[in-house]
């Protein structure tokens, strides 16, 4: 990856890691799926968990300096402020956070203090109805784009929640989707969809006209295996959470390959807190090689990441904060790796 970076003007550099595994409420994350940033710079982290540990589902809030600030939407369940399988989040211009839930077939809106405001929860396949809402993105005019995964489409709503339009159908051609997941919208309102099981990113105009498709199945540069998340910066660079390949790739505005990241997490502040009171782990960790050479039966990206702690593992989402820093959310390592452009 460094060879590519050296010949291009585009380079992402590692900044830091936030996170810690937890099996309780409070500080730490549990299978995080997405992040979002409030106007005052707080980081909202969506703890997805799964059905066996739904009591830990919640949105946790922390600062960039790793102060744990609180949580809401706790407990897993049918109530308005609870989740069943929450997938993605986005803030609108009024600092309200929208959260999708693929099992409740619901989009729930909270204020930035975590108070329930509203929900869109019509399930079905008609206009404005959902079957497994997944990725969500909100543009500068507060239009809301939602990936409606089992209906194989994107739906667009205006800032009042009124249905505007939709596009997509099942399949593998242009404007067709196979279990799509993440979505992003750029400054000019163009929409990017992580077409998960078609191993590509599709780009559309804000009303759904197909513009381009990037990528194909594979492990090479510019190829994807089950991409789950996408983000676009103000220069048009496209960041892709290449989930099945356990990596992040950056494409230029024209879709050309720019850089591949495999991950280089370091210890978060919370991780230091833990190791400082568990010294035998700290000491044996100090003599360990956490990027080992592995026997051939473990040579898939998923196995390699399972054995290599600094690497991305389950990189579900990529998101940019207000300063353009890239946050990679890793569901299997319960942390956020943060990168920025050099």
């Amino acid at each position: 990856m460094s060879t590519h970076a050296a010949t291009k003007t585009f380079t992402l550099e590692y900044v830091k890691t936030i996170g810690l595994t937890t099996n309780q409420n409070g500080r730490g994350f549990v299978n995080p799926y997405d992040v979002a940033f409030s106007k005052d710079g707080r980081i909202f982290v969506l703890n997805h968990c799964d059905s066996a540990r739904r009591n830990l589902m919640r949105v946790g809030i922390c600062s960039y300096d790793e102060e744990y600030l609180g949580e809401f939407g706790k407990g897993g369940g049918p109530a308005d402020d609870q989740f069943s399988s929450p997938v993605a989040m986005a803030f609108d211009s009024r600092d309200r956070i929208y959260i999708t839930d693929e099992l409740h077939h619901r989009v729930t809106i909270f204020d930035s203090a975590g108070n329930f405001i509203n929900k869109w929860d019509a399930s079905g396949s008609g206009d404005g109805e959902f079957n497994g809402p997944a990725g969500i993105a909100i543009d500068g005019q507060d239009n809301v784009y939602i990936v409606d995964q089992h209906n194989s489409r994107v739906q667009k709503f205006d800032s009042n929640g009124s249905y505007v339009t939709q596009w997509g159908e099942a399949g593998s051609g242009p404007s067709q989707f196979n279990l799509p997941w993440g979505i992003a919208v750029d400054d000019s309102g163009q929409v990017y969809v992580a077409d998960w099981r078609n191993d590509r990113i599709q780009k559309f105009t804000s009303d759904g006209k197909h513009l381009a498709s990037f990528g194909e199945s594979g492990e090479g540069d510019g190829q994807f295996y089950r991409p789950s998340g996408v983000a676009v910066d103000s220069d048009g660079y496209i960041y892709v959470a290449d989930w099945g390949n356990e990596r992040v790739q950056v494409l230029g505005p024209d879709g050309s390959f720019q850089q591949m990241l495999r991950g280089e997490a370091t210890l978060s502040k919370w991780a230091h807190d833990y190791l400082n009171v568990n010294l035998e782990e700290k000491e044996t960790r100090a003599i360990s090689n956490l990027t080992p050479d592995l026997p051939p039966q473990y040579n898939t990206p998923h196995h390699i990441s399972s054995q290599t702690e600094p690497y991305f593992w389950g990189p579900v989402s990529v998101r940019l904060d207000g300063e353009g820093k890239l946050y990679v959310t890793e569901s299997n390592r319960h942390r956020l790796q943060i990168y920025q452009r050099a």
């Binding site: 810690l20 937890t22 099996n23 309780q24 409420n25 409070g26 500080r27 730490g28």
Partner: peptide, 12 residues
């Protein structure tokens, strides 16, 4: 249980 209070112990 669970009394496994690695985090947020006081409340749990």
């Amino acid at each position: 249980g669970s009394f496994d209070t690695h985090g947020g112990e006081l409340a749990q």
